[in-house]
Amino acid sequence: MDAVRLRRLNRWQAEELREDLADLYVESSAVDSGEEFHGRQEFLHRLAHDVQQPGFDMLVAEAKALTGCAYGLPVARDGSWWQGFDGPLPQNLEQLTASGHVFAITETLVHPHEHARGLARRLQERLLADHQASLGVTLADQADHPALAAFEAWGWQEIGQIHRQPPAPTTLRVLVLRLGARTTEHPDGLAHNARTQRPE
């Protein structure tokens, strides 16, 4: 495989690359025949929304062509991102959110002919490390079993469900990727790390 390099895109560069990203989405998705156009349009709609959010950040992987991307945004300290979580939010998640150490990855795309597991995880971990996140979080459709299996293979763990309203009421699975050191006191790797506290 050709050497893959990672490159950061700002929101304007991401918008300029939107058609290529949509092509990558279609190539990397297990959509039924005939559903490609609908899925592509939904992806473009999500991308157009996400690039406008505060803190939006995207990494792309390129060899001779675009081979992957991951993007997302920091979870707001006020905890509004967790609205609709089914049941009480674990206290350590509240603390990490309030300290600004949670980053939501809203999309991960990898060309199916590339080394998907290694490249996807590399993109995700680089994006989270660049934001000094202690926890990555993402949402997955309950019916999207291939995506859920992929995230599990990349080290993500399901912690519950969340209900989202627009554009239609949806229940999604909440997956987290713990980046903190696991200790006897915090075997889940979710210790609040004061050393990485961001300045107010």
Rank of each mutant, 00 (worst) to 15 (best):
L21C: 04
T171S: 13
E16L: 11
L127T: 03
D130N: 14
L128P: 02
G39Y: 14
E114K: 05
A48F: 07
H113D: 15
A140G: 05
L127N: 07
I159E: 04
E62N: 08
S28R: 00
L59A: 02
A116K: 11
H111E: 06
Q53H: 12
L177W: 03
P54R: 00
Q132V: 12
C69P: 01
T170S: 14
F43P: 00
L123I: 08
P74D: 07
A22E: 02
R195Y: 12
Q95A: 13
A76C: 09
V60D: 00
Q13K: 09
R46I: 09
L24M: 02
A63W: 07
S29L: 00
A150N: 10
G100L: 03
E158A: 13
P88N: 09
A140W: 06
W82L: 10
E15W: 14
S80W: 05
A70C: 13
L9M: 10
L59W: 00
G160P: 02
K64A: 14
Q52P: 11
A104P: 00
L123Q: 02
R182W: 07
G34W: 00
E158Y: 05
F103K: 05
E125L: 15
G55F: 04
G155C: 08
A181N: 09
N10P: 06
H113W: 10
Y25F: 15
R5M: 08
H38M: 10
R77T: 10
L17W: 04
H186K: 03
L175H: 12
L127F: 03
A63V: 03
V51T: 05
R5N: 07
F37R: 12
A133Y: 00
K64M: 08
F151H: 14
G136W: 05
L24E: 04
P74S: 07
A70W: 04
P167K: 01
A168N: 10
E36I: 03
E16P: 02
A76Y: 02
D20K: 11
F151Y: 15
G72W: 03
T196F: 09
A104H: 10
R117K: 13
T183V: 09
V176K: 01
E62T: 11
A65G: 10
G160W: 00
E27H: 12
R182N: 05
L123H: 02
H49D: 15
M1F: 10
R164I: 14
